[in-house]
C-alpha cells in the first residue's frame, strides 16, 4: 500500500468536496421548493395543472439523470442562437448551471411524489378535528397538515438526499471538478484508477454517513414517538 499516494490523493479530492456539497444542497433546496409546488399542483382541482405536474414527474422519473444532464448541456447548445436572443445563453453555456438545473428538476420529480405521499398520509380525522375547533386556511396547513406530512415523508426524503449527493458525481461528465471529476483528472495523470476511485468512494461514504446521521437526528426530533431506535437512513 502506497500510503503517501493515498494521502495526497485524499487531500486533492477533498478539494472537490465543496463543489459536490454545493451542487447537492443547492439542487435539494431548489428541488424541494419545486417539489412542493408540483405536489400542490397534483392535488389541484384544476386538472390541466395536475396533468402538467404528473407529466413532469413522469418524464423526469422515467429518464436517466445522465441523459437529462447531456440533453440540457449538450443538447440545448444546438439552439444557441435562440437562447442568445432570449438572453439566457450565459446560463446554458455554464456546465455548473446546467448540472444544477438537471439535478434540481430530477430531485423535484422524486420529491413531488414524496411530498404528495406525505400529504395524502395525513389522517382526515385530524384535519377535521382542527376544522371543528375553528382552524382553517393557512394556519391549518402550517400547524397541522404540513408537520404531519413532514413526519411521514422525512424517511423517504432522507433517502432522496443521500441519492442526490451520489448523483452529483454524474456532473463530472460535463467537466465539473467535483470529487469524481477530480478523481478522473488524477487518474489521467497517474493511471492509478483503483486507489483513486477507492479514495473517492470513501469520501462519498463519509459524507453520506454524516448525512444519514443528521437525517436520523432530524427524524428523532420531529417524530420522537415514532421510535426507530435512532435508525439512520440507509445508504444505498
Amino acid at each position: 500500500m502506497d500510503l503517501d499516494f493515498l494521502w495526497t490523493t485524499f487531500v486533492r479530492l477533498i478539494g472537490g468536496v465543496p463543489l459536490t456539497l454545493q451542487l447537492a444542497f443547492s439542487s435539494i433546496v431548489l428541488g424541494l421548493a419545486l417539489a412542493v409546488l408540483l405536489a400542490v399542483m397534483m392535488r389541484s382541482w384544476f386538472t390541466p395543472l395536475a396533468w402538467a405536474a404528473d407529466g413532469f414527474v413522469f418524464v423526469f422519473r422515467g429518464t436517466p439523470l445522465l441523459v437529462q444532464v447531456f440533453l440540457i448541456y449538450y443538447g440545448l447548445g444546438q439552439f444557441r442562437p435562440v437562447l442568445d436572443d432570449m438572453g439566457i445563453w450565459w446560463f446554458f453555456r455554464s456546465p455548473y448551471y446546467c448540472a444544477l438545473l438537471a439535478l434540481t428538476l430530477n430531485t423535484a420529480a422524486y420529491g413531488a411524489e414524496i411530498v404528495r405521499g406525505g400529504l395524502q398520509s395525513v389522517p382526515h380525522g385530524q384535519i377535521e378535528a382542527a376544522r371543528a375547533f375553528g382552524m382553517s386556511g393557512f394556519t391549518l396547513y402550517r400547524r397541522i397538515v404540513a408537520p404531519i406530512a413532514l413526519r411521514q415523508a422525512l424517511p423517504a426524503y432522507g433517502n432522496e438526499i443521500i441519492l442526490m449527493i451520489k448523483a452529483t458525481s454524474l456532473c463530472s461528465t460535463i467537466t465539473l471538478m467535483e470529487v469524481t471529476g477530480l478523481a478522473h483528472r488524477i487518474i489521467s495523470e497517474t493511471f492509478r484508477s483503483f486507489e483513486v476511485f477507492f479514495v473517492a468512494g470513501a469520501i462519498y461514504l463519509a459524507i453520506n454517513f454524516a448525512m444519514s446521521r443528521l437525517i436520523g437526528l432530524a427524524e428523532a426530533r420531529i417524530a420522537p414517538d415514532l421510535d426507530q431506535a435512532s435508525r439512520p437512513a440507509e445508504v444505498h
Binding site: 389522517p123 380525522g125 385530524q126 377535521e128 378535528a129 382542527a130 376544522r131 371543528a132 375547533f133 375553528g134 382552524m135 382553517s136 386556511g137 397541522i144 408537520p147 404531519i148 413526519r151 420531529i222 417524530a223 414517538d225
Partner: peptide
Amino acid sequence: DGAQLDRLRQKLGMVFQSFNLWSH
C-alpha cells in the same frame, strides 16, 4: 362566511369517536 364559521366553531367542543388527536 368562513370567518363566521370559524368563530362559531370555537363555541363547540367536539369529541370524536376515534379521538383524532393530532399525532405530531
